[in-house]
Amino acid sequence: MSVDEGHRSCRAPVGQVHWRVRGAKAQGDSHRRLGMPCQDAFHFAEVSATEGSAPTYVLAVADGAGSRRRSGEGADHAVRVGTQAVERLLAAGPCPAGAADWGYLAGEAFRDAHRTLLGLFRAYGDPADFATTLTLAILHRHYVAWAAVGDCFLVVRAKRGLDASFALVDLEPKSRYGAAADETAFVTSDRCLETLRNYAMDDPRVTGVLLSTDGLESPFVRNSGRDPQVTESIVRSVMEYFDEQPQQPDAALGDFLYSPQFRQYTQDDKTIVVAVSDDDR
């Protein structure tokens, strides 16, 4: 079993929100059978808006298009370029002051990353060969901002324990029987920026954020009629595990993705990045 594992945590200054972030990805069974590599990617980093300011965390996931030759490389580049774009913008200007500003920054970072990626892919060949989705999430104090193209999804948790509630805050719009039902948008698509979704929320109750590629949509999102909902039990299980066992490494998440239960739900590549806050909200 190979698990591409993520990472680490670090201690923020007293009084600032500290997030512990874990990530992992797992090759889907169907990809394994076809001899295809895992074409998902994730990355995350802690960045600082300015010297001495509260830490900012950037999470990124990308899902390379299964039908494209070099989409795994595209996804790898996308998560890193996206994270760097956020860092660059934060370094270049004042720290955003409100949710609207954070949402704007997320969108600008995505546009910046899109330009960089297209230039990079053109240098290597046909950008369409690198087709990939990309979602960036930014955590800063009680702000959660995101920018996304394609079918990754984002879940947040408010409060903890028995009081916890979960919300699916970003999911690619999909038509029930429409022509676009099986078409997702990619960073390399001509109309990429027309489908960009960038938003932010300001909620001091947020204690957890989960970002994932569509390979996990089946177990994590229920299609209840016209209003898709989070499958609370599974998100709760993941977040509470890292609440209670803060030192557990990403490998635990990798084991989870490779568990037989998941493999029953989907044969696609699976990627997840989870952040839980340390403070007692």
Binding site: A167, V169, K174, S175, R176, T184, R226, D227, P228
Partner: peptide, 10 residues
């Protein structure tokens, strides 16, 4: 996974 609906809470 993809043939879903358009309305969700945001």
């Amino acid at each position: 996974g993809r043939d879903q609906t358009t309305n969700w809470r945001r």
